[in-house]
Amino acid sequence: MANGNALLDARDVTIRFGGLTAVSHFNLGIQPHELVGLIGPNGAGKTTVFNMLTGVYKPTEGQIFVGGVSTHDFKPYQITALGMARTFQNIRLFKELSVLDNVKIGGHIHYKYSAAAAVLKTNRFHEAEEAAEHDAIELLKIFGLENRAGYYAKNLPYGDQRRLEIARALSAQPKLLLLDEPAAGLNDRETRDLLQTIRDIHKRFDIAILVIEHNMELVMELCERIVVLNFGKTIAQGTPGQVRENPVVIEAYLGEPAEAAGI
């Protein structure tokens, strides 16, 4: 049974690729409105965890519950419908579509109607389209992208593309937002802005957020609780303060150049 009101509950999740155990006995529970960070050095298995949570990979052992529902036989799109949305480490926008359409597609599950309704332009079609348009513009305003609604997504500057990806994910109205290395490729200033944006949306939409980051600094500043992975195992978890002091974590991170770890 899943933990009553947990948004996400991963229990003893293990995945093996051939003989390689990429992640073993991973446990994570996220309550509503929590801000959790998942960190670890390169190759620790962070993205693999993400891909299991979102249904791209199937865990070899263990179970994952989203909103109390076991997602074992779910496809990624079904998991999204349970109230979980994500961004991608290497931005995956719909490049040849407009910024506005990107956000509208993010809200797909909420503005669906049949092909027949689309062809006949029924009242249902008009209602859904107006709602989609309205909600999308509102979201773009929050991210300061409303003036660029008509641009092709591929023509946005890099930082804006990252923000658009978050806007697109929010458009699905998730209860839990998964951010996969949102600061990757951003400079210091942009990272500051992003930090502020994440805090803002956390407050405004009253959602829980799970951030995977390579950049320790950002996670330390942002998150209430941090889970540290190394070699597929959870080596520590706790508040930023506890994690910072933890000798196992320091060792794991000092094992590689400090600059890369962002300390």
Binding site: R92, L93, F94, L97, K104, I105, H108, A118, E129, A169
Partner: peptide, 22 residues
């Protein structure tokens, strides 16, 4: 329409489309 947007999303990036609930 939303149907057509879903078509376009599938064309542009299947993995992302799937992650958007399509």
């Amino acid at each position: 329409s939303s149907v057509g947007r879903a078509f376009l999303a599938v064309r542009e990036d299947q993995v992302a489309a799937e992650a958007m609930g399509i």
